[in-house]
């Protein structure tokens, strides 16, 4: 939609969940709208490219944000076929670094897929989007699961991206302070899957 001249915007509204108690629903919805906007802004401040938050209308549970002109990483990989090595390295470096900074801010994305990353047409910068499922957590477990979700998503949407993921992890480990511990945990998560069993 046209927002201000030359600044198209995305309008993201959270809908009422009629199956929830109205008061509870309002509290949860408000909290999540603010949470999403706050994550976008904190990441941008820390140097990770995210859409600019223009306005948060708490009453209407709506976020107005910058419309990013670009393609999703998913479409980019699909259109490229096998990635040329230096493009792959650049992409992985950028994703890995962004994820490292994000986890150092104790932000867990909650839905890391290549559809939730974009490449700006103009600057080629990788943009992290959709923090609708994000949470604040300092737990190594949550961060490792975040990476595991990305790994599974990569495997299921793009064949032969093992090397890409390995390079992402390498740069993740370099940029994140707690990266090593998370990567170690990732191995454990891989063995047992995303959900922890209730029995030891």
């Amino acid at each position: 939609m046209p927002f201000a001249p030359g600044r198209p915007a995305i309008v993201k509204e959270r809908f009422k969940k009629s199956y929830r108690h109205p008061i509870l629903d309002e509290k949860l919805t408000t909290r999540r709208v603010i949470q999403e906007a706050r994550c976008l802004h904190r990441m941008r401040r820390a140097g990770v490219d995210t859409p600019t938050v223009y306005l948060v209308d708490v009453k209407a549970s709506t976020i107005y944000m910058e419309y990013v002109d670009g393609t999703s990483v998913r479409d980019f990989i699909s259109s490229q076929g096998p990635l040329v090595e230096d493009i792959e390295i650049k992409l992985a470096q950028s994703i890995g670094k962004s994820l490292g900074i994000m986890h150092d801010l104790d932000i867990v994305h909650g839905d890391l897929t290549t559809s939730n990353m974009m490449i700006r047409t103009e600057s080629q910068s990788v943009v992290m989007i959709d923090f609708g499922l994000s949470a604040v957590s300092s737990m190594v477990e949550d961060k490792a699961v975040d990476l595991y979700v990305l790994e599974r998503a990569l495997i299921s949407t793009h064949p032969d991206t093992d090397r890409l993921f390995q390079t992402i992890l390498k740069h993740y480990g370099r940029s994140s302070k707690g990266g090593k511990i998370v990567l170690k945990k990732l191995e454990e998560v891989r063995r047992r899957g995303r959900k922890r069993t209730a029995f030891g």
């Binding site: 706050r38 938050v53 223009y54």
Partner: peptide, 26 residues
């Protein structure tokens, strides 16, 4: 509260707009 890092105009603007949008919620 943007620190002293050197940024271009559009990046400064993005951070300013974001800070205004999240007023009271950060």
């Amino acid at each position: 509260k943007l620190g002293n890092a050197v940024r271009d105009h559009s990046e400064t603007l993005a951070l300013v707009i974001g800070a205004m949008a999240l007023k009271g919620h950060l």
